[in-house]
Amino acid sequence: MTALSLKNVNKSFGDIHVLKDINIEVEEGEFVVFVGPSGCGKSTLLRVIAGLEDATSGEIHIAGNQVNLTPPSKRGIAMVFQSYALYPHLNVRGNMTLALKQEGQPKAVIAERVQKAANMLDLGPYLDRYPSELSGGQRQRVAIGRAIVREPKLFLFDEPLSNLDAALRMNTRIEIANLHSQLGASMIYVTHDQTEAMTLADKIVVLRDGRVEQIGSPMELYNNPANQFVAGFLGAPSMNFFPAELLGAGGERTMGIRPEDLFIAEDGPLSVQVRHVEHLGGDTNVIARLDGHQITARLFGQHQVAEGENLRLGFKPESTYAFDREGQRLR
């Protein structure tokens, strides 16, 4: 059964058309990540799914039922917000139990679910503390706990890690992945961080200006991007683009090569001048100029390359991508 299906969903704020004809299916138990640049409508889409905004047109089905007119609390969803949004006047236990009390669940059930969630997230010692007495990471876990206790059919996460520092972000990311496998519930996760998208997702939805650009598994999108935008958005450092003439090929095409597919070759077809070198230990990133275009090469291992040096780079012909003037992929 599909956990969520969106059919031709549109959303406008007055004259501003924010979401344009969105069609998405989420299977049960699937982890779906919405990615896209800032302002592309990810949060708006999530809020439409949650029922916090009404769709201007289109249908929203959750677990088979159309929910366009259902209030957020009855949709069988739980949401985790970027700013945590904990109730400042309630302690951790109060924050986690509020929704259950509103539903009128019996006391025993509430106590059991809180216990379970607290164990899962290591929140046991903090149940009687107030949000202002917790660290950022703990607050985020409480926010996740508040979602878990409701046992929703669908979890919605809106950039839950963006307020955490790098180390904590990685730990919490792993925690969310574990949670997904333990609970087996469907999850929708919004981020503009492509590492989070690649590592967590069963399926990635790439959005741009309120439109779905491509839907697929992380490797599908990486290996087989439908257009220049998706190709450039996924993968770090991002794909190099330059006009095909530079390779001697004709036509008004744009060529794309991933930095990791480039290597130093004495007789390589690309003659570049090195501008900057980043030594990462395992990899070396070389940023260079190719006839006025910037090109990045990610070389495996450690290389001694000097700034200003002239290099020749090579690549395998099958690792190139071609795009037409509108950015559509040419195959």
């Binding site: 949650a50 916090l52 609390s73 904990l86 109730y87 509020l98």
Partner: peptide, 21 residues
């Protein structure tokens, strides 16, 4: 914060409860 009010809506609080509490 909008998020706070929205969290309340998702948790099933009425508009009056959100306002007063």
């Amino acid at each position: 914060s909008d998020d706070l009010k929205n969290a309340g809506r998702i948790d099933g609080l009425s508009e009056y409860t959100i306002f007063f509490r």
